[in-house]
Design a protein around this nucleic acid. Structure first.
Length: 400
DNA sequence: AGGTATTCACATGAAACTATTCTCTGAGTTAGG
DNA sequence: TAACTCAGAGAATAGTTTCATGTGAATACCTGT
């Protein structure tokens, strides 16, 4: 009954949101603003594709939330439109290499490509070169040009090296009828430096850098999104300004600003406030931070959680913890709760990964005569720590 | 005192192994003609 | 004889282990003054 009442009043109370999708990460606005220059450049470079001449391979750099993906998708879309209208055999494929279990290995990348050509391949069991062969056949059975966008390409090479890219750059030589043009997108500005020189030179025949947005631009972007997302008058004045100031201070990350605004809206709505105010922004920022960390921690495998839990246990007494101490405690935790014990080698890697996730701060120090080790400290707030600790205890079902 | 050499406690790298998931193949089995 | 079943071989992948090598600076050990 109580629940019923709750839903009733939930329905009656009208939401701030008109179209929340406009603040979701997947949203594609109809126009890209403040990226005209880059947009034009991309278009210039890719335009020959419409005449079925292979454009230069293109490489796009820029930090997160600078509109790279958006701009490229826009260009692709309009090229597709024109290609369809004029019956040009141009095919564009967009692949995000970061997506786990979709395109984060060589095999899966090619499998994904084949899928885009309308064929299905098993997720495992076949040799990789068979996939390549199938892909060649599909591609080469008619005269066409493939525009292949590899988003977050740095993740791919970090994980499996640049051999794949080398293969792709060489494909053209083997194709008879079709042509393939590569377009890489990377968040990492120095990504190409540790790439095979051959790959680098052929991959980045052209390069475009996307600069961060400045505060005013973010503000404008934000306001446009907010206009579609929120109902009239739902957002207090000053909120958008503050929100964009936050994001600009970081590094001009528009996505973060948009997330922040959406979460602030949700927070405000849940707390029953009359409109979205500046207080909600602060809370939203905290919530995003803590959600991110809790999410990261709980989605890790059990062994990671055990290591993390060991750190939790030691941290109240000591500020700087060393690998050895963590490992000892971890070992006893394992035996006590009947998990198998991993080697110190592995735990060392796990610590490095926890550091990457931003859950701990690990610094490698030398204690001179007393060896070299990681100096580990927790990187999370008290409140989050408590919550996380509880969750871990439950999921590992150990207490005390 | 000043300079080298040691030494610790891990870090870092490479290769190999394990378990799981999946396909493909061919031998053996079954059922229908 | 065609269709079916099922075990075994081969792949891809994630997570580890094993073995080998690297490393920064506090100490131990010299050395000459």
């Amino acid at each position: 009954m109580k629940i019923n009442n709750f839903f009733e009043s939930f329905l009656k109370k009208d939401s701030f949101f008109m179209n929340k999708a406009a603040l979701m990460p997947a949203y594609m606005p109809s126009a890209v603003v403040y990226r005209e220059e880059q947009l034009q450049e991309v278009a210039n470079i890719l335009a020959p594709a419409l005449r079925l001449e292979k454009p230069s391979n293109l490489f796009i750099y820029g930090k997160t939330g600078t509109g790279k993906t958006l701009a490229v998708k826009h260009v692709l879309e309009s090229m597709n439109e024109i290609a369809v209208k004029n019956k040009i055999k141009l095919k564009t494929v967009y692949i995000n290499c970061k997506l786990k279990r979709v395109a984060d290995t060589e095999y899966r990348l090619v499998a994904q490509l084949i899928k885009d050509f309308g064929q299905d391949v098993p997720s495992t069991g076949l040799p990789t070169d068979e996939l390549y062969n199938l892909f060649y056949q599909l591609l080469d059975n008619e005269e066409q040009l493939l525009l292949l966008v590899l988003d977050e390409i740095d993740h791919l090479t970090k994980k499996i090296g640049d051999g794949v890219l080398y293969n792709f750059t060489r494909i053209n030589a083997e194709l008879k009828k079709a042509q393939i043009c590569l377009l890489g997108i990377s968040n990492n500005l120095i990504f190409a430096e540790n790439l095979d020189p051959r790959v680098r030179s052929s991959l980045s025949e052209e390069e475009i850098v996307f600069p961060p947005y400045n505060a005013l631009q973010i503000q404008d972007i934000l306001r446009k999104r907010a206009d579609t997302a929120f109902k009239e008058g739902a957002v207090q004045s000053g909120v958008i300004e503050k929100c964009s100031a936050y994001a600009a201070r970081e590094h001009g990350d528009a996505r973060r600003a948009i997330d922040l605004l959406r979460v602030a809206g949700e927070v405000a709505e849940r707390s029953g406030a009359a409109e979205v105010g500046i207080i909600h922004l602060d809370e939203a920022e905290r919530k995003i931070e803590s959600d991110k960390i809790i999410n990261a921690a709980t989605s890790q495998p059990k062994q990671f959680q055990l290591v993390l839990y060991a750190i939790f246990l030691i941290s109240p007494q000591k500020k700087n913890i060393f690998t050895g101490e963590i490992y000892e405690l971890y070992k006893s935790l394992c035996t006590r709760s009947k998990f198998n014990v991993l080697t110190q080698r592995r735990v060392s890697d796990i610590l490095a990964e926890l550091d990457m996730l931003g859950i701990i701060n690990a610094k490698i120090i030398s204690k001179g005569r007393y060896g070299r080790t990681r100096e580990v400290a927790l990187a999370i707030e008290e409140t989050v720590l408590f919550k996380l600790k509880e969750i871990l205890e439950k999921s590992l079902n150990l207490s005390s």
